[in-house]
Amino acid sequence: MASAKEIADKAERDDIQSRWLLSTPALLIVFLAALGPLLIVVVYSFLTPGNYGDVKWQFSTNAWVSVLLERDVFDDTLSLAGAHLSIFWRSVSLSAMTTILTLIFGFPTAYFIATRPEHRRDIWLFLITIPFWTNLLIRTFAMQEVLRNDGIVNWVLQALGITDHPVQLMYTNFAVLAGMVYVFLPLMVLPLYASMEKIDFRLVEAGYDLYATRLQVLRRIIIPLVTPGIVAGSILVFIPSLGAYVTPRVLGGGTNLMIGNLIELQFGQGRNWPLGAALSIALMTIVMVALLFYVRNTTRSDGSHG
């Protein structure tokens, strides 16, 4: 006869078994669709570029060396690849700025929506998602219309007499930043809204009741409670910003490249697939390190969300 403990153990084993079975399709997709291609990219980054694109099956670490370093044409010495570094730096700083700006603009927006009467919130959320209906390329060209020399911004500036000749906005870091903030704002607003909506606004009243001013209520009560949304929104904005391709291409022109453009260049005109692959892996590493750093910091400085 089986004891109660044996029965319980068996039930647990069965449970674990069926859980594995149930998750098999998901695991298969993860392995085949995500890890598989990733593995190919890693392998490619250690091969030699072919003459017309593609790769030669010949082991080489050249691609990895040239991610950060460049070989002098005459004496073969290695020095830091200034062009790559400045592109990396531009990518990281523009993405960080994008994240901060979307947070600054998105926070009040999400707060506004979360404090509307319940039946009105859906309409506001719907309005926030409207940009998703149009193609990214079209939205970016629309931004170009706004920023170009005879665009709306310059027209307003001149009509107001602030300047008498058009200010060069297109093909600057500012244009890229403005474009990315515009494109990624909904990705910040939605997770912020999701965690603000869960706030019990009686806590805000309790804060006022206990002599907290508006600013203190924001800092001591609302922001700590919205932290999960801030983290999620920042991740959702920062990662695609770092890999942004269309926006810097259209608004930044040929001079304000970001990592995404650099990678594309290697697979296209550059005909250096291994370097493109190595750059992709490098980008992924930056993202992962940044994420790890960010998540650890935000969860530690506010250990309450355990």
Partner: peptide
């Protein structure tokens, strides 16, 4: 405004701050 009135409330639902300890809640005011 409420934060200037020498009046405090015990809320029906208590409305304790979930991100603070018991002592931090009591010391908040």
């Amino acid at each position: 405004p409420p934060f200037k009135r020498p009046v405090n409330t015990v809320f029906q639902s208590y409305a304790l701050f979930p991100h603070m300890t018991v002592a931090e809640n009591i010391g908040f005011g």
